[in-house]
C-alpha cells in the first residue's frame, strides 16, 4: 500500500502518518516545512518497518508541485491512497485581516487540494481500489461568522468530495470526508480550545482515535466521518435550524471566545 500524505509535518498529518506506519503502509510525505518533514520521516523509519519518502513542496505553487511530481514520476511511484491534510486557518473578522492571508486560505485549502488530488488520481495504481481522504471540518456544517473564509473553504471541500465520490465510484475510488471538531495538535490550538471554555472542550476530538477511525472508515467505503456523538448532533442541528439563526449564535460565541483569547496574548 502506497500512501501520499500532504501536510504530513503538522499535528493531524503526523498522527495519520503514524497510523499508516502502524499498519505497515509505505508513504510519500509532503509539507512546506522541510525540517519538520525530515523529523517525522526519521521518526517513522525508526518505529516501523516501512519505506518513507519525503519531498518538501509548496502546494499553492504549481511549479513546486510539478517538481515534486517529477520526482514521483522518476521513480514511477503509483499510489493506493491520498490523504489531503494540508490546510490552514487565520481567525478573526474579515475586514480586519490581511487581504493576501485571506486569499491564501482558499488557495491552499481549495485550489491546492484540487491540484494535488488531480495529479495523484492520475498516478493511482491501475486496476486497484483507490482511497482519498479530504479533511473538512465541523465548521463546514454551519455559516461561521469570524471564521467565514475558513468555514466556507471547508464547505467547498465537503461538497466537492461528496460529488467527486459519486463520479468516481465506477472507477473503484472511494472518498471519505473527515469533519472533526477541534483537535489538540499544537500549543496554539490548545490555547484556542481553552479560550472556548466548555464548548471547546466537549467538541474536541482525541487525535489518536480520529486518525485510526479515519483510515478504517475510508477503507470500508464510508462517505462522511464526523467524530464524536455531540459533534454529530451539532451537525444535524446545522441542517434543520435556519442558517441566519445559526450565524447569530455562532457570532456571539466566537466573539466571546476570541476576545478572551486575545486578552490572554
Amino acid at each position: 500500500m502506497n500512501v501520499m500524505i500532504t501536510g504530513a509535518a503538522g499535528g493531524l498529518g503526523r498522527a495519520l502518518a503514524n497510523e499508516c506506519g502502524r499498519r505497515g503502509y509505505n508513504m510519500f510525505l509532503t509539507d512546506i516545512n522541510e525540517e519538520g518533514l525530515l523529523c517525522i520521516k526519521r521518526g517513522l523509519e525508526r518505529q516501523y518497518d516501512v519505506v518513507v519518502a519525503a519531498a518538501a513542496c509548496d502546494l499553492t505553487n504549481p511549479e513546486s508541485v510539478d517538481k515534486m511530481l517529477d520526482v514521483i514520476d522518476k521513480y514511477g511511484i503509483r499510489f493506493d491512497m491520498l490523504l489531503n491534510i494540508a490546510g490552514l486557518d487565520f481567525e478573526g473578522g474579515f475586514i480586519e485581516r490581511d487581504r493576501e492571508k485571506l486569499v491564501k486560505i482558499v488557495s491552499l485549502n481549495n485550489a491546492a487540494t484540487l491540484r494535488i488530488t488531480h495529479a495523484i488520481l492520475k498516478r493511482r495504481r491501475p486496476g486497484k481500489p483507490f482511497t482519498i481522504v479530504f479533511v473538512s471540518s465541523l465548521a463546514s456544517m454551519f455559516p461561521m461568522p469570524l471564521k467565514a473564509t475558513y468555514a466556507a473553504s471547508k464547505r467547498f471541500l465537503l461538497d466537492f468530495a461528496v460529488s467527486l465520490r459519486q463520479e468516481l465510484k465506477r472507477e473503484n475510488v472511494n472518498i471519505l470526508t473527515l469533519c472533526p471538531g477541534g483537535m489538540v495538535t499544537t500549543r496554539e490550538t490548545l490555547c484556542s480550545i481553552k479560550a472556548q471554555g466548555f464548548w471547546g472542550n466537549v467538541t474536541t476530538n482525541p487525535l489518536e482515535s480520529v486518525a485510526r477511525n479515519t483510515i478504517d472508515r475510508a477503507l470500508s467505503g464510508k462517505c462522511i466521518y464526523v467524530p464524536g456523538i455531540l459533534n454529530r448532533v451539532l451537525s444535524f442541528l446545522g441542517k434543520i435550524i435556519p442558517r441566519s439563526w445559526i450565524a447569530a449564535v455562532i457570532y456571539w460565541r466566537w466573539n466571546n471566545a476570541q476576545s478572551k483569547w486575545l486578552n490572554n496574548h
Partner: peptide
C-alpha cells in the same frame, strides 16, 4: 498532557 500530542518525530 491531557491529550495525545506528538513531537516532530511523531512520538
Amino acid at each position: 498532557r491531557s491529550w495525545y500530542m506528538t513531537t516532530e518525530e511523531g512520538y
